[in-house]
Amino acid sequence: MDRRNFLSITLGSLALAAIPASVKAEDFRKSKPAVWTAHTIEDAIANMYGSKKLEMTDEIKLSVANVSSTDTKKKATAANGGAVPVDFKTDANVKNIAVLQDANPESAVMVIDCNEFSVNDYGIKIKMGKPGKVVIVAETTDGRLIGVQQDVDVALGGCEG
């Protein structure tokens, strides 16, 4: 397995001894390469999850540029498109979580492989080259596909910065 090789090189023999059986993580860039070249959110979801129906829900909480997606009165505006704060969490039992957007040439930002230690509460900063939307999609352990989205205005493009 590539992953095992990679870890053995980086961590040396000490880590190698500790790794068998315990590492079940998935490298989605290798297992789902088409997700990372998809130009639209829809294509990225299709390549990641197949034809499974996406259910928009409040089971995932999303906040972009410190504006919560549940606050319909306020629209998220990012002052710096080079580092737009994206915070998301869910209490649902999920296998993985994907962060997608349509403000850059490709859609995928990251895919998290969840495990028994996961507390699914994340904060990241992403580039947004123009205004667009951020979508978080998660696959639950009982096989549902849940998602949440938020539109974001960007004051200054991130790709050129």
Binding site: A18, M110, V111, D113, F117, S118, V119
Partner: peptide, 26 residues
Amino acid sequence: VNGKTVIDMSTSQFLSKNPIITFGFR
């Protein structure tokens, strides 16, 4: 932690420069 994977992320070029990431685990 103790040889067990607690966090695992596949990432793309659209994380910010010098990315800052917060997360939790048990």
